[in-house]
């Protein structure tokens, strides 16, 4: 394996949890709901998936449990913002705080346990192609799943009737409601989908990426996922690009250190964040004001309003 291959491989795996969580949030936001609780749902996904995987000695059950945990957290959020029309920003933050706390309680008995690595899926012949072979055809299942998910979400939003409904509701819930579209129901499912994805991303962190659980292991990745959605101007393909750019910035700064450039490590650590701001700025300048933000994003829906 050459160093370029190796670096690309690391970037892809580092980006995958960000991509999965951001795709879920993208669907939620496209329906007009801003869920700032990604970090909390992800933390719960990590803790529950690990607990279940260890208890039942099954990665599959672990993944399912992680997605379920994320979904349940999302359901709680849906109850607040749809059922009670509560402030979405506040509810999302509450979800994050709750998720970080609860995940600590759930994970505590599993500190010190570990899981075996999942063997990468080796697609014969194709994986022997130089450079791209290892990169494209010898990843773990989650990496493929995340790419398939990107395509599916894109197709769903742009090519299906149901996706169109979801987008119209996100654009303007008042007129969507007037047209008889089921605002609440669609948003409910969109929120749950976001939760399941965040849970899956958490499961990836705990079961594949680190293969052990520890408190606070999401370390702010949920917030990065939120940033990616805006960065991508609410388009799935760009989420993929953004996730890989952020992953690359994170990984390359470490390589820059190992290559002994002698730059302050704090400056290098700040690069991914500064790069995100810069990218947001450039995108905004290029696309003008409303860069694809759903019109009703973050506004509580009450029929008579």
């Amino acid at each position: 394996m050459t160093i370029v291959e190796a670096i690309l491989l690391t970037i892809v795996t580092a980006s995958t949890p960000l991509l999965i969580a951001a795709l879920g949030e993208l669907v939620t936001e496209r329906s007009g709901v801003l869920n700032l609780g990604v970090e909390g749902m992800m933390a719960m996904g990590a803790a529950c998936s690990f607990a279940a995987a260890v208890t039942f000695d099954s990665t599959l059950i672990g993944v399912a449990a992680g997605m379920l945990a994320g979904t349940l957290m999302a359901a709680l959020f849906a109850l607040l913002v749809l059922g009670f029309a509560a402030n979405q920003t506040g509810s999302g933050l509450a979800l994050t705080i709750l998720g970080l706390g609860l995940s600590g309680l759930i994970g505590a008995p599993f500190v010190g346990a570990r899981r075996d690595p999942i063997a990468p899926l080796d697609i014969p012949i194709l994986s022997d192609i130089p450079v791209v072979g290892r990169l494209f055809f010898e990843q773990d299942l989650f990496v493929y799943a995340s790419i398939v998910l990107t395509v599916l979400v894109g197709l769903y939003l742009m090519r299906t009737r149901s996706g169109l409904t979801l987008r119209s509701i996100g654009e303007n819930h008042t007129s969507a409601n007037a047209l008889g579209l089921p605002v609440w129901r669609v948003r409910f499912w969109a929120i749950l989908f976001g939760g399941a994805c965040a849970g899956l991303a958490g499961a990836y962190l705990a079961l594949v990426y680190t293969r052990f659980w520890s408190p606070g292991m999401t370390a702010g990745r949920g917030w990065i996922a939120l940033a990616l959605v805006v960065f991508a101007a609410w388009r799935p393909g760009w989420v993929l690009v953004g996730a890989y750019i952020f992953g690359a910035a994170t990984v390359l700064q470490l390589h820059a250190q190992a290559a002994q450039f002698g730059v302050p490590s704090q400056l290098l650590s700040a690069v991914p964040y500064l790069a995100t701001i810069l990218a947001l700025l450039l995108l905004s300048i290029r696309h003008g004001r409303a860069i694809g933000a759903p019109g009703s994003l973050g506004v509580p829906f009450v029929p008579d309003r």
């Binding site: 509560a86 506040g90 509810s91 705080i97 706390g101 309680l105």
Partner: peptide, 24 residues
């Protein structure tokens, strides 16, 4: 454990937001 305190803060914030909504 400390995590309980954090979870409680989350629950409290949710309850206040929900209660506000119920009033409105």
């Amino acid at each position: 454990p400390l995590d309980l305190t954090q979870a409680f803060q989350g629950i409290l914030l949710m309850c206040v937001l929900a209660a506000d909504a119920m009033v409105s």
